[in-house]
Design a protein around this nucleic acid. Structure first.
Lengths: 79, 79
DNA sequence: GGGAATATTCCC
DNA sequence: GGGAATATTCCC
């Protein structure tokens, strides 16, 4: 029996996959990385919908916890 | 140097001490115990102002973590 | 980035 | 109630 996928990973998948916020955060062209287009909006508007905080650094901390070579996010702050 | 008081304890002190919510949660007459008069209102309205959740059981879990004989809360659900 | 402290959840 | 897993914060 595979153990349950951690909530952080399913939440992160969901928030990236949500097309209504692709302007703020989306997959890259090849679909193997996350692009955060606007970290300010991302932190303020998107994070609290999925997590109990609105801190970009807390999100990145969790990302680093679960990171493997299969999962390569990057950030492109357009400000 | 004393180490810093954990946020849970200062938050809990503050929420009990706030007189505007004494109808929901207050000190007892001798000031050495917490009385939660309405757990439903307490969970829904008071907890999220001080913590990142609205679950009574999570509050009690933390209370048990920090409990000593000097700190004796009790709950009086008036429903 | 990540170790460690604290918070929140989950489950016995 | 509390151990353990996960999340959030704090700090190096």
């Amino acid at each position: 029996m595979a153990s349950r996928t951690p909530p952080f990973l399913t939440n992160t998948y969901d928030l990236v996959d949500d097309e209504s916020t692709d302007r703020i955060v989306s997959w890259n062209q090849t679909g193997d990385a996350i692009v955060v287009w606007d970290t300010a909006e991302f932190s303020r508007d998107v994070l609290p919908k999925y997590f109990k905080h609105n801190n970009f650094s807390s999100f990145v901390r969790q990302l680093n916890t679960y990171l493997t070579e299969c999962f390569t996010p990057f950030f492109k702050d357009v400000i």
